[in-house]
Design a protein around this nucleic acid. Structure first.
Lengths: 246, 246
DNA sequence: CGTGTGGTTGATGCCTGTCAACCTCTGTGG
DNA sequence: CCACAGAGGTTGACAGGCATCAACCACACG
């Protein structure tokens, strides 16, 4: 019964049965989105909460010069809260990368759920804290890591997130991001990311082709990313990252 | 009675009287921190919520190579929630920039407040959403803006935030950040930021010296930052940004 | 079998980093 | 009251990572 979004919230903080029912009800009529289709775009009125039940999406901004920067990558279970805040219109867009199933929870509905179910409010808050952790990690990557390191770091991040939500049953990960998307996420050019990925391949850190990513030995990628060895383990549940299932 | 932190929360979402009392009580015994003093450092156990009642602080990470990246700049009223999340120890540090007054709210106390006072939970949630907005803006700056643009953007951000919390009575802003701090926030070097600031000065966009920043004509800085003109107005309350009081 | 999207390669140049001095304040102690 | 120390700021020479521009390749699909 509970969908990926509910499961993720439960992972952050226990939910009461009533809370689960409320969230399930609010996400009971999701929409399908095709690749490249916008969930919301710059200029639209913000407000709703999007919950990715299936598929990947990106949150991005196009600068006046035409260049594009991706600010977040959404995977199944992830949500993003487009609260009105101080802005009356969106200053960025969200678009599906793959075929996706997305629940749109209107602002007032979400407000009521969170007001009536403190356990949901708490879980959403924790989700938000973790999202900002990720954003901060990106800031570090873009500020102080070279392209080899930041690319390795991003691939590891996505790999870890995929494992956490149970998306890598076989050791090979579905990886729908094009090199252009990776480049737009890392603040680099497609050409340069292409060369970086080649060196990662040649060093045996990754096997990446046709929308599939395999990381034969995570230790290699960890070393290339410039992270201390313990980083990855600390962010992973004990079992699924053992060398054997990769 | 309410301190800067309470005022900021109230600005995000109305608080009940009982909620205000609870937050005031939890922040009633703040500590003083001197410049360069750590509120918490890498390796420490996370958990508490810090509320900046007075002064500035930075959230930063030191990479294996020794370089430093600042991920957030905290001003009076700001808070940061060092939830345990998935990490058992801090992977970054927070240190005071100026003489500061900081309330430390233990994890369990904050949990109880948020559980017992949904209005606080909501305000903290909104605060967190806005923090991530800021983080995302930094990502865009670091990814797709050159150093002139990103520096202009950062100065504008800080200027706007200062106005919003009433820190610029006279049109001249107290600006305690050294060029090294700005560089560490933008992912650049001190040398290069020095040159950028000089061009900003020569173009009449800023007057910056001895810990004070004046922006004679925000429009110039806005243009240099590459933002569309409306960006600044949309993020500001109507009155205090009129040309006359700058 | 053409068309398009995504991926690859090479040549060239610039933005920014690196290194290494040197300058300018401010506060302090003799 | 002056010398000194230290932090912050400034300048110049040089190098390198990555962007830019411009082709070209390879696979999937209708």
């Amino acid at each position: 019964m509970p969908n990926r979004f509910v499961k993720k919230l439960q992972g952050f903080s226990p939910l009461t049965d009533a809370a689960i029912r409320a969230v399930v009800k609010a996400t009971a009529m999701p929409q399908d989105f095709g690749p490249r289709q916008h969930l919301i775009r710059e200029g639209d009125t913000p407000g709703p909460v999007f919950a990715m039940l299936e598929g990947w999406a990106i949150r991005y901004k196009v600068l006046p010069g035409g260049s594009r920067q991706i600010m977040a990558i959404l995977m199944p279970g992830d949500s993003c809260d487009l609260h009105m805040g101080m802005l009356e219109e969106m200053d960025h867009s969200i678009e599906a990368v793959t075929q996706s199933v997305v629940a749109t929870i209107p602002r007032d509905v979400m407000d009521q759920i969170m007001a009536g179910h403190p356990t949901v409010a708490r879980a959403m808050y924790v989700a938000q804290l973790i999202d900002e952790d990720t954003s901060r990690a990106w800031i570090v990557s873009m500020g102080r890591r070279n392209s080899i390191e930041s690319t390795s770091h991003l691939l590891l991040e996505l790999y870890i997130r995929a494992i956490r939500v149970g998306l890598i049953p076989s050791g090979v990960m579905e990886f729908p991001l094009t090199q252009a998307v990776i480049a737009n996420a890392l603040g680099a050019t497609t050409v340069h990311i292409n060369r970086v990925l080649q060196t990662l391949r040649h060093s045996g850190a990754i096997e990446l082709r046709r929308g599939h990513l395999r990381i034969p030995d995570p230790a290699i990628l960890v070393r290339l990313s410039g992270l201390n060895e313990s980083y990855v383990q600390r962010r992973l549940p004990p079992q699924p990252f053992s060398r054997t299932n990769l």
